[in-house]
Amino acid sequence: MLRIKNLSVYYGYVHAIKDISLEVKEGELLVILGANGAGKSTLLGTAAGLIKPAAGEILFNNKAVTGQTSEQIVSKGISLIPEKREIFTTLTVLDNLLLGAFHRYRKNKEGLKNDIKEILGIFPALKGRERDLAGSLSGGLQQMLAIGRGLMSRPALLLLDEPSVGLAPLIVQEIMAILVNLKKTGVTIVLVEQNTKSALKVADSVLVMERGGITHRGSPLEITANSSIQEAYLGRARS
């Protein structure tokens, strides 16, 4: 579904992504692990069109989307939920959700009401809060809103950047369970996480990044069996 070939991204003179190639299969839940500064968020931002790559190619459903703007990319079926959530704090929850469908609004105005119902079904905690300003929600609800808004675009590929940041463990569990359910509905998911244990429980495959490059790729079992990864990301000492 998503193929990245020899991607390089620079921030000025800093080589943030170094010649990365990877593939995400349809229906897969890929977890990307890595320390701060490994290039995980940059990779997602580039795939979503927020950052222009210096070199390489990004193919989505075998069509090149390299260098396209995020406005163009979301209409092709890729939705990014960024780490900072980027919700519209001065608008209501309902308006946030409605705007998530911006690129398809003209084609299906009436269908949006049903889509909102569907999203509120996925995130029942948002029910009854539709008229509240998004900025007044708790961190957990804001995260649910951010994911719900992303789903309103009806993406085939959902890119999630550290959805567990700053959230209570129970909320993290809830969000992970929702991601598993979403995967069952056919949505392909790429999840960047520092909450390694939670992420490994839901992952189909795992990719580890370090200093702008990919160091490991494998199944959750293979990754957890790797002693160096265990030491670096799972907090277990090398035996």
């Binding site: 995020s70 406005e71 209409s75 919700i87 519209f88 608008l91 308006d95 705007l99 911006f102």
Partner: peptide, 18 residues
């Protein structure tokens, strides 16, 4: 509302296709 969204959060708006 799309205009207000763009004013409130430019990155968020771009990610919705605005």
């Amino acid at each position: 509302k799309a205009v207000k969204a763009s004013v409130n959060n430019r990155t968020g708006a771009r990610l919705q296709g605005i």
